[in-house]
């Protein structure tokens, strides 16, 4: 009876049953799970989207060109993200650093836009306590913004490691996993942009 050599217990070292990296499996499972998280938030928003008995209507406060620009910034950050990944896979750490900064920068543009938007809405009388529309709008977009913020911190940590010379071609998986997270945050916004902003509240 054959026995394979003793293996370390950690999955990310050595071999696995599927040949897939455990952290990558974890990230995809997390993204499946996060679908349900945003599913619940979007579901709530759709239940309440028409409910603004007093406060301003969505069409009163939304500034479509403005939000389109920040949505576009987030979309393009996804491009920068894949280019960062392509760079480290080639072993091009210099380009990796540039693209990582670019992703984080575009993410910051998006977050800045959201902060400005929230402030404007607040001054126009729409906030978390304005009927159920306000509650569900701010909770949904706020959760997404928190996801983006967490992603920016993560990417900046990767950039720091790269700057300190600790990122090598062999660690491209670290970038790939962060990238999966980042793209997911981007596609969630693709949905939110359509469902919340573009499809007019009827």
């Amino acid at each position: 009876m054959e026995h394979v050599a003793a293996l370390p217990a950690q999955a990310h070292v050595g071999e696995t049953s599927t040949g897939l990296n455990s952290r990558k499996v974890l990230m995809w499972a997390f993204l499946g799970s996060d679908c349900m998280l945003f599913g619940s938030l979007i579901g709530t928003y759709l239940v309440y989207r028409g409910n603004y008995p007093s406060g301003p209507k969505p069409s009163d406060v939304f500034d479509i060109p403005y939000t389109s620009v920040s949505a576009f910034a987030l979309l393009m950050s996804s491009l920068a993200m894949v280019l960062a990944l392509a760079a480290i896979q080639r072993g091009d750490i210099r380009r990796l650093k540039i693209w990582l900064l670019c992703v984080a920068g575009l993410g910051l543009v998006f977050i800045g836009g959201q902060v400005y938007e929230f402030t404007t809405f607040g001054s126009e009388g729409l906030n978390l306590t304005t009927a159920t529309f306000g509650s569900s709008f701010f909770t949904l977009t706020g959760f997404h913004g928190t996801h983006v913020t967490f992603g920016i911190v993560w990417l900046l940590m990767l950039w720091m490691l790269a700057a300190r010379g600790q990122m090598t071609q062999a660690r491209s998986l670290d970038v790939e996993i962060a990238g999966l997270y980042w793209h997911f945050v981007d596609i969630v916004w693709i949905i939110i942009f359509t469902v919340v902003y573009l499809i007019p509240a009827i």
């Binding site: 799970s33 996060d34 349900m36 998280l37 599913g39 619940s40 938030l41 709530t44 239940v47 309440y48 409910n51 008995p53 978390l128 306590t129 304005t130 009927a131 159920t132 306000g134 509650s135 569900s136 909770t139 959760f143």
Partner: peptide, 28 residues
Amino acid sequence: PVITIALVELMFDRLFGANFFNTANGGD
């Protein structure tokens, strides 16, 4: 994740005056 969101909504209602389940302001 679903109960997480439900709890967040309830917590926002209780702590920050959100209206998810506040029937006076349209909560269901």
